[in-house]
Simulated scan of single mutants.
Amino acid sequence: MIKHAHTNRRNAGILAASIAFAVAGLNNQAHAQQVEKSSRAGSGIYEAVVNSNDGHIYVTGAGTRSTPGGAIYKINPETLAIVDSIVLKDNPPFGIGINNKTNIAYTTNTRTNSVSAVDLKNGKLLATFSNGSEKSHVREVLVDEAKNLIYVSNVGDPSDIWVIDGKTNTVLHTIENTGKTTTGLAFNDKKDKLFVTNMGTNEVAVIDLASKKVEKSFSSGGESPVNIVAEGERLFVTNQKSGTVTVLNSKTGEVLKSIPTGEGAIGIAYDKKTNKIYSANRSTGTTTVIDGKTYAVLADLATGSHPNHVKVDPKTGVAYVINKTKGGRPVEGQPAPGPDTNGDTISKIK
């Protein structure tokens, strides 16, 4: 009898543990992030910002080859419906950053080698300007809200970075020789250092903003590093050619982890609220969700034709992915491709 009682207690313990494990698994599945919805978000869309003043998503659109144009589209964060637009047809926007304190957005207008400042409160174009160079290829925008300074990467060999005064909307100065094909930009916590990705050399450069010079460079841990975000002493880098997100020590450059995501990893975002990393993978049509503690891949979500950019609302932890449309010129003698229903869309991940 004693033996049977002991066996029954052991079996009951095993059963309870199994049930607890199953329930935990179901809870994890229930809380696994999913694409809640996707919706059309404009024409030739490229990047986005979250406006903390009104809670809306602002998406840049540069039009198409056959129908050139330009606009910033205002998107409802719940329904993903376009509720308004700001026409910028003379200078079609690609990259975008925002100063939430002044409610002014800054766009990089690659086709016209310029930057535009737009008041999001009234939709007014405040200024469009450049640094005076004949050849430019402006790309990413990073804003220091406290100092009202805007940093813009200008891709080249060598590249440089424009530093813009948000009070006057003019270029204060240019940080020269930042590397070959400088694209992504990120601040350290004190905002006295700038981390930039150099696609041409597969490196991350560290720029001292006081001296306006590159202090050092180290390997990105992958091929063709495009974008970068910083969190404490960690850097998260998307490497487009190798299809990875690498985690680097921002002080030493040590590669802490290399995480396979998908071909064409390009957009990157980090959410402090949930400690998750997001990688938009242009070639695979997926967005990868990564645990910021263990670096485990939590999900690979199909979001659209060419996921290009991802932003997280810091208040809600909701991620928004910008999906480019399929490109390519018509081929003579072949029928024109049909409409891309999964491109020019914004996807909401919760």
Rank of each mutant, 00 (worst) to 15 (best):
D340F: 05
V229A: 03
Y278R: 01
R10P: 13
K257W: 05
A71P: 03
V83W: 07
P335N: 07
I207V: 15
A5C: 13
E223V: 14
T294D: 12
S283V: 02
V35C: 05
K348E: 04
L26T: 11
R139S: 00
Y295F: 15
T110W: 01
T128M: 06
L256Y: 04
D84W: 01
L194N: 05
G222Y: 12
D165G: 11
G292W: 06
L126W: 01
K326L: 14
A30W: 09
N275R: 14
G292T: 04
A12E: 15
P260Q: 09
T303W: 00
T108G: 03
G317M: 10
S220N: 05
G304Y: 00
L194A: 06
P330C: 10
D119P: 04
G317F: 10
T201Q: 10
Y295T: 11
K37C: 02
A62P: 00
I268W: 01
G70Q: 04
D160W: 15
V321T: 02
T246V: 11
G264I: 06
G232E: 13
T197H: 02
L194P: 05
V87K: 13
T246Q: 07
K257R: 12
E176Q: 15
K135G: 12
L235E: 07
A269N: 09
N131W: 06
G338I: 04
I228E: 09
T60E: 02
D189Q: 15
S224P: 02
T246L: 13
D165H: 05
D90L: 06
W162Q: 13
H137G: 11
T294C: 14
I14D: 11
T112W: 01
T246A: 14
P225D: 03
T244H: 07
G61W: 10
N342M: 07
K124D: 12
N281L: 03
I277S: 07
K212Q: 14
G343F: 01
T316R: 10
K311A: 14
T261Q: 07
G304C: 02
E231R: 09
K251D: 15
T238L: 10
G13A: 11
I207A: 13
S258T: 15
I150T: 08
L301C: 03
I82S: 05
S66L: 14
T238S: 11
R329L: 15
I277P: 03
V247T: 10
T128N: 08
K315P: 00
K273S: 13
G304I: 00
L248E: 11
E332Q: 13
L256P: 05
N323W: 00
K89W: 00
A210Y: 07
D300A: 15
V59S: 01
Y58M: 08
A296C: 07
V143A: 11
K311T: 07
N227H: 04
T246K: 11
T64L: 02
A319P: 00
I349Y: 03
T182C: 15
Q240D: 04
T284E: 07
P260S: 14
P260W: 07
K89N: 10
A41I: 02
A336G: 05
E254L: 12
T341F: 03
K147Y: 07
P77F: 06
T168Q: 14
T107R: 03
L125R: 08
G232C: 14
